[in-house]
Design a protein around this nucleic acid. Structure first.
Lengths: 139, 139
DNA sequence: CTGGATCCTATTGGATACTG
DNA sequence: CAGTATCCAATAGGATCCAG
């Protein structure tokens, strides 16, 4: 497995290029899509949001994220941890205690996601209306 | 319970509440997740990006988005159209001509997505490193 | 309490053939 | 050209049982 994405002197903080140009620069479009997929799955964002409020233990998190199965919570946390967005701290007591929290990277993701959240909140009604309209004209 | 995130007010539009509060206000968390799922699938963002450059016809789009199958391009466009993000204009000539373009709503989505794109571009190296590190320590 | 392992179903996406 | 229809493979996700 080669994670190796050609990471040349990536525009540290971009700076003067507009985003479109940046994206087309070196196949980063794919990276963006990948990240959206990662964070766009069924549970990741809800977990990140809950951890954004405060660090939580496994079962706390399970209760906080409504409807998530144990398996999916574990898998979601593992993915987020692997990406460096969430930290996992084990206290080897009996019974064991495991604390999850956002890392600095995870918190930094929070901001652009918050912008996206704002967009959704501002446009959800329009979107719902568009869907209803579309569904009408189709049938 | 306080959001660990400094929200820096931003309020690009209408929002006087901070995003965390908004999100928790009325189960919008789910709406955000839904939208991320919609836009986070394998092709939606790439299509939106290409249409953000300029309106395109079906097969133009197909060539522009590398690797997409005809079926998935159709489905992706239908979803985006249903959400009101993309417009579809049919010119009933022979052969038929169908033009796709971003709507105003679609273009407005482009901005927060650009922020997310910027974040990905700025942090992809860190993420790749985190993954490599994680993959090492587990095996 | 925190998960790993297993089994099963649903959804996603690709390949191909066909049509107005 | 711009799709639709069908079949198939891969993946995501849920339920359940087991273990340290």
């Amino acid at each position: 497995m080669t994670p190796a994405i050609a990471q040349e002197g990536t525009g540290t903080s971009g700076g003067n290029m507009d985003v479109t140009t940046q994206i087309e620069s070196f196949g980063a479009c794919q990276a963006v899509t990948d990240m959206l997929s990662r964070v766009g799955d069924k549970w990741s964002m809800q977990v990140v949001m809950k951890l954004g409020e405060e660090p939580r233990r496994f079962n706390e998190l399970r209760r906080a994220v409504d409807g998530i199965s144990q398996r999916m919570l574990t898998r979601t946390l593992r993915n987020l941890e692997r990406d460096g967005l969430v930290s996992r701290t084990v206290t080897p007591t009996v019974p064991p205690r495991v604390d999850y929290a956002l890392t600095d990277l995870g918190r930094s993701l929070w901001m652009p996601v918050a912008e996206l959240s704002r967009w959704v909140l501002e446009n959800r009604v329009v979107i719902e209306a568009a869907r209803a309209q579309y569904d009408l004209t189709i049938e």
